[in-house]
């Protein structure tokens, strides 16, 4: 069983500024900013995973993140220092930053894989983003990390990884949609189901490629199931949205934040704020609620350990 230790949690607050505790389910949203008050009510459920997204290994613009080589390592050290380890960790795409050079792409992936191997927890799930897979249809990613879409199960939760990044048109594709439909067909309508994608399945902001071209078809497949949540990355910020009864939770990126959808003329990386180092980056732990639908999300900032 994993539960974030209260001391771990208070330590995180002390180290990095604001911690958001967000109860995101059917019933309530509770936010605590920069204070340990109320933080003791940490989840007691039996399954926890960590979602870590958009590490962009190979990105090297110091104006955006002067610690581009150290941020991921800090997160790994932080996770390793947690007293109770999660059941698994998923890297939800854009593990590496895009390059036109296939050799360099593979070198970046190998480096990222070696750094990730520094996690004490060895149960690590990988999936591609368009920066990893969009230029070669996932070829290098599969060589380094394996399949780009797959299923697995922990305790009573069914996890399905959907690849909406290898196809450069921001699509899942009919073949994979048929596979998704077949996998969903094996589950009960009441099953707890978590879908991992890189891009949002819904049309968050297509002008910035914040959508999946055939995402509506995937949502149609998911809709008959009562307890489904989608966790994704790509947009480098926390975002929560519902299509019908299905939650969609976007995670922060690990290297730099992006602007809110449509808030700037261009979708540019937000510059480093030296007054607030690592602001807008981080990762999250996720715990399914045991007595109702939904998930408890804990946003964790980057900090020195």
């Amino acid at each position: 069983m994993y539960e974030m230790d209260r001391r771990d949690f208070i330590k995180l607050i002390g180290m990095g500024g604001a911690v958001i505790v967000m109860e995101t389910g059917i019933t309530e949203i509770v936010m605590e900013m920069g204070s340990s008050a109320g933080a003791a009510t940490m989840p007691q459920e039996t399954l926890t995973f960590i979602q870590l997204s958009d590490t962009h290994w190979g990105f090297n613009d110091p104006k955006i993140n002067p610690d581009f080589a150290g941020t991921l390592k800090k997160a790994i050290a932080q996770i390793n220092s947690m007293k109770s380890q999660p059941d698994f960790i998923i890297f939800s795409g854009d593990v590496t930053h895009s390059t036109d050079d296939p050799k360099e792409r593979r070198r970046r992936m190998a480096e990222a894989r070696d750094i990730i191997a520094g996690l004490n927890l060895k149960n690590v799930k990988m999936m591609p983003g368009e920066h990893d897979a969009g230029l070669d249809n996932g070829e290098a990613f599969q060589e380094c990390f394996g399949k780009t879409h797959y299923t697995f199960k922990y305790k009573d939760v069914n996890f399905i990884v959907v690849d909406n990044a290898s196809d450069s048109t921001s699509s899942i594709g009919d073949t994979q949609l048929e596979w998704l439909s077949a996998e969903m067909g094996k589950l009960e309508k009441e099953s707890k189901i978590v879908i991992f994608t890189h891009r949002p399945l819904f049309e968050l902001y297509p002008q910035w490629d914040w959508w999946t071209r055939d995402g509506a078809k995937a949502i149609d497949i998911l809709m008959p199931y009562k307890n489904v949540a989608v966790f994704y990355g790509h947009i480098h910020q926390e975002h929560h949205h519902m299509t019908g009864h299905i939650w969609h939770h976007a995670a922060k990126g690990m290297l730099f934040p992006l602007p809110a959808p449509g808030s700037l003329p261009k979708r540019v990386q937000l510059p480093w704020d030296s007054a607030h180092p690592y602001r807008g980056v981080g990762y999250r732990s996720v715990v399914p609620k045991t007595d109702e639908y939904g998930y408890t999300l804990t946003e964790i900032p980057i900090a020195e350990v």
């Binding site: 036109d100 230029l135 450069s168 048109t169 002008q207 910035w208 979708r267």
Partner: peptide
């Protein structure tokens, strides 16, 4: 009316508009 490249084309794609 904004237009953009909607096929991922590399590091810089996001600004191709």
């Amino acid at each position: 009316h904004e237009f953009h490249c909607d096929r991922f084309c590399g590091d810089g794609h996001e600004g191709m508009s």
